[in-house]
Write a protein that binds this DNA or RNA. Structure first.
Lengths: 210, 210
DNA sequence: GTCTATACTACGATAGAC
DNA sequence: GTCTATCGTAGTATAGAC
């Protein structure tokens, strides 16, 4: 499908070269079509950019659906979850997120998203509403069940730090490979990062061992 | 000084628009000079880009000098540090790094660096050698003193996660402000993030409370 | 729907005046 | 050292053929 092909090429090019640096000519050529197809299907460069953001949001939310299943539909359902269950679900969600960050697919998404994080445009709004919001609020709900002693503010700050521990595997990939002393992240290193993330999250969730 | 002005404008523009998207014309104009000054002083667009990376590395390493003082000069000096002292120094280093991430100066640096992390070029090499290497290896040295039970591999993975918890304040700023429910990070939110980072780091360093 | 052809603007590099 | 002027290339958008 031509539109799909254009979208995926667009995500790659916009992520690599930025909005201004990317060229509709190159995107069209790499998708095996003429530049004017972009005008026809997406209305222009800007339209293609926003459509690319929507596409990423859809892929991301698809990927994390299992980890969010049945969460936040209503307060009574959430209240039935025990602290132990919430902890296990939280670890599963972090695992899923880490999987995404270590998965090759996320490379082009990340380049796109990271740019939007630094200099948010309307595309970030679409990414947030389309995928991130669900993920963050789900995490918060679970954290509140595990740590009823923490204030809402503390929970939100901690959620940001949890996010950082997983995002770093993608957003600072070059530094992570250096500190691990490897060229690329092999399944071995992926397992190591997963395990260390799990241990750290558990330590944090259990709180300071007075 | 013209060169300094050009460098700072260059960091801002390259960070915002990427290497291809940035325009030497605009950089020169915003610095109040002619485009050919860039050719004269830096040899061209590429030369300016690399000089910008060096400039960031210098600023970064200057900023974290106090936290790294007297570390890693020789093994005997490090061995004299107790676990408690090492913990305190590690927390101080994380605090300093978080300060940098929350400081306005790091906004333009971050845009530049984050691009290089995704798609490393020679500029990343300069950033790493000029600043990041020192910081990461110093962190590792201290972590090894606090947790002699952890393997080298585990320590390195954990260092990456620590890095993530601080970097997120800058690299995913747009998401962090959303999850905190604020427009910008005020001193209040900065203090909250600092405190939560400290608590989390301590929990991780103490290990699972069996 | 998809292509080619074209209009217009902006890019980086460089030569030469001062 | 810093400027203006110019060259060749490449960008987006658009009109019109098929």
């Amino acid at each position: 499908m031509l539109q799909e092909r254009l979208l995926e090429t667009a995500i790659d090019h916009f992520g690599r070269f930025g909005f201004e640096g990317a060229s509709t000519r190159h995107i069209a050529q790499a998708s095996g079509t003429a530049m004017s197809s972009i005008t026809y299907h997406f209305g222009g460069k800007q339209g293609l950019y926003l459509a690319a953001a929507d596409h990423i949001a859809k892929c991301l939310s698809e990927r994390h659906k299992p980890a969010l299943e049945g969460l936040g539909r209503d307060a009574t359902a959430d209240a039935a979850i025990t602290a132990e269950q919430a902890t296990e679900r939280l670890l599963f969600m972090l695992d899923t997120l880490a999987d995404t960050m270590l998965h090759p697919d996320s490379e082009s998404w990340a380049r796109f998203i990271v740019r939007e994080q630094q200099e948010p445009t309307e595309a970030f709004e679409r990414l947030y509403r389309g995928a991130m919001h669900m993920l963050l609020e789900g995490t918060l709900r679970l954290m509140a069940l595990v740590r009823p002693d923490m204030t809402e503010r503390e929970l939100r700050a901690q959620a940001a730090l949890f996010l950082g521990m997983t995002l770093v595997m993608r957003t600072a990939r070059a530094s992570v490979t250096r500190v691990l002393g490897v060229e690329t992240i092999s399944p071995d290193e992926a397992a190591l990062l997963h395990a260390q993330l799990r241990k750290s999250a558990l330590s944090i969730l259990k709180g300071p061992s007075a």
